Amino acid sequence: MEEYYVWVTTRRLQPGALEEFERAWRPEPYPRGLHRSYAYWSQDGQEVTGVSFWESQEACDAWRTSESEAQRRAAMAPYVVEEREGFYRGRQLAVPQR
């Protein structure tokens, strides 16, 4: 069974800041070792959870400590009230067919 390396961040945003936050949130350049990522917004637009899948913990750590990520976080900072993050290992669960 294939294991995945996942970085999850949840940010609470200032009211009305979702559009500006989304522009600042996009990484540049695209991180090495990142396979795919997803973003989920609460209905009121004040909470955003990002889920990214990495080839290894080392690849994720290299991005997290990079100058590009520091610049991205600085660009997002004016819109963020609170931030939580975690790094996880896991695998896909089999869902029974109906």
Rank of each mutant, 00 (worst) to 15 (best):
E3Q: 13
S66L: 07
L13N: 05
Q46D: 01
A75D: 07
R32I: 00
Q92M: 02
P96V: 10
E69G: 00
H35S: 11
Q92G: 02
S68A: 15
R11Y: 01
T65L: 04
M76S: 06
L34T: 02
E47I: 03
D44A: 09
S66G: 10
Q14A: 15
R73F: 00
T9E: 11
G45L: 10
E58H: 03
T10M: 04
S66Q: 07
A39C: 05
R36L: 00
F87Y: 13
R12N: 06
W63P: 02
P31D: 06
A94K: 11
E20T: 02
E19G: 13
G90W: 05
S68I: 00
Y79G: 04
V80I: 11
E67F: 10
R73S: 02
R98Y: 05
C60A: 13
R26N: 09
R72K: 06
R91E: 14
R26E: 12
V81Y: 00
R32H: 05
W7Y: 12
R23W: 08
E22I: 11
E2L: 09
A94N: 07
F87G: 04
R11N: 11
G50T: 15
C60Q: 14
Q57I: 06
R72Q: 14
R36H: 09
V95P: 00
P31A: 09
G86D: 11
P78T: 04
R32S: 10
R64L: 15
G16Y: 12
V48T: 02
R64D: 13
W25D: 08
A39M: 09
R23H: 06
R23F: 08
R84H: 14
E28I: 06
A94G: 03
R84E: 15
E82H: 13
M1G: 15
V80H: 04
E47R: 15
E58C: 01
E19K: 12
A59H: 09
R89A: 13
Y88V: 02
E58I: 01
S56R: 02
E55Y: 01
F53H: 15
A62T: 14
G50A: 12
P15V: 04
S42A: 13
R23S: 11
E83W: 04
D44W: 10
R89Y: 01
L34C: 13
G33A: 04
E82G: 01
Q97V: 13
E47T: 14
L93H: 03
E58W: 00
C60E: 12
Q43Y: 06
R11H: 04
R73T: 08
R84K: 15
E22G: 02
Y88N: 06
A94Y: 12
E55L: 07
Y4I: 07
M76P: 03
R98D: 07
Y4N: 05
A70W: 05
P78N: 10
Y40R: 08
R32G: 02
R91F: 09
S68N: 14
R72F: 01
P29A: 12
R26W: 08
V8Y: 03
A62P: 00
V95W: 07
G45M: 10
Q57W: 06
R23D: 07
D61C: 02
G90F: 09
D61H: 12
F21S: 07
G45D: 08
F87C: 05
R36W: 03
E3W: 04
D44C: 10
A74C: 01
G16T: 07
P29K: 13
Q71C: 03
W7R: 05
G86N: 08
P27L: 08
T9M: 13
R73K: 14
E3R: 15
H35M: 14
R36M: 06
G90M: 03
T49V: 15
